[in-house]
């Protein structure tokens, strides 16, 4: 009986101990131990290059930015927070390892502090960043997509200043794309992680988000819709961005082209049998142009892409939308395997 209770207790504790042990292994294997002790130096004559990690954990214990600060120091390097020795950027750390180390450091407490230590529980930084009030996860300044899409206005590379980053959850492709609110068009897709807001959120802020992945598709640089006959098309369409509506979690972009209302959704379908984050899926534009009567055309990219639609047919190098589909049609782009 007693032994079974012990086993039960042990198995309950196991995951907690496991995480701590993994972090302690990282502390050794990733080279932290070369400069940092975990607790205060046992031998006061031994000079350590960096602060004891327990002192760092105590210092940031109640700071909602603590995790972010430690992650930033690991990523960017640090100087001046704890003496004048400089810690170089720990660029060999993967994001996962850096997160695990930072979360572990935050559980450490200086020994003189009662109630400290890794097993004391309470307000842990992990709980802080798996925040039930947020649908996404914020690990420091890294934004990770949860079960619903994240729509985030921020400066993005290759965009005008009015850009929108969209991160889709696994069930919607687990991929991210950028939309330009000034040009009312898709810019690109990337796979991997979503974004790091460090330069937008910390310091003076006001700078570009970093894409945490690889671009897998670059949209053509023109606005793709044309209304009316080809000889009536203006050189540059007159566009007015009107915002976006969240429909089942995903944004539907709203804009006007020559006064015609457009609602534009962009979805991604991973190719069957392939992992969602690969570059072989299908991007689909869903357009809604309520009340439109004129001809509607979709201008493809100059380079060869594999378009697929049942709502339009090729005509003089453009996809001419069937008259009965003008108010609502879809055009897909199959990415090369």
């Amino acid at each position: 009986m007693r032994s079974s209770i012990f086993i039960l207790l042990f198995s309950l504790l196991q995951p907690v101990l496991g995480e701590t042990q993994r972090a302690e292994q990282l502390y050794i294997s990733q080279g932290c131990a070369a400069c940092h002790q975990i607790n205060q130096p046992v031998d006061p004559n031994k000079v350590m290059v960096g602060p004891p990690l327990a002192a760092v954990g105590s210092h940031y214990a109640n700071d909602p930015r603590g995790l972010e600060t430690i992650l930033s120091s690991l990523k960017m390097g640090a100087k001046g927070k704890w003496g004048q020795n400089e810690m170089p950027p720990q660029s060999h750390l993967t994001i996962e390892n850096a997160e695990q180390l930072a979360e572990w450091i935050l559980t450490l407490r200086k020994q003189e502090e009662p109630g400290g230590g890794a097993k004391s529980g309470g307000h842990t930084p992990e709980s802080a960043f798996h925040n039930p009030l947020l649908s996404e996860k914020r690990v420091g300044t890294v934004v990770e997509v949860g079960d619903t899409p994240v729509v985030c206005r921020v400066y993005l590379e290759g965009a005008s200043s009015r850009a929108i980053a969209v991160g889709l959850p696994e069930k919607q492709g687990g991929i991210s794309y950028a939309f330009d609110a000034a040009e009312c068009r898709l810019l690109y897709f990337w796979s991997g992680g979503f974004i790091d807001m460090e330069r937008a959120w910390t310091g003076h802020g006001g700078w570009y988000a970093r894409l945490l992945g690889e671009k897998i598709y670059q949209a053509p640089s023109h606005f793709p819709l044309r209304i009316g006959k080809p000889n009536e098309w203006p050189e540059k369409p007159e566009l007015v961005f009107k915002g976006y509506r969240i429909v089942e979690g995903q944004p539907e972009f709203l804009y006007q082209v020559h006064g015609q209302e457009v609602a534009h959704r962009i979805t991604y379908q991973a190719r069957a049998g392939n992992k969602s984050a690969s570059n072989t899926g299908q991007i689909t534009h869903h357009f809604s142009l309520p009340g439109v009567t004129d001809e509607v055309s979709f201008l493809p990219a100059k380079e060869h892409l594999h378009y697929q639609t049942e709502d339009a047919t090729w005509s003089s190098g453009v996809l001419l939308v069937h008259p009965d589909k003008r108010s609502g049609f879809s055009i897909s782009i199959n990415l090369k395997p």
Binding site: Y155, S161, R162, A181, A182, G203, H204, G205, G206, W207, Y208, F241, K242, G243, Y244, R245, I246, V247, L254
Partner: peptide
């Protein structure tokens, strides 16, 4: 929870700058 983020005006310029 807001569903519609409606642009009222963007009739001013902005560029990437920490101070804008």
């Amino acid at each position: 929870v807001a569903d519609l983020y409606q642009t009222i005006t963007d009739g001013f310029s902005m560029i990437a700058s920490f101070h804008q």
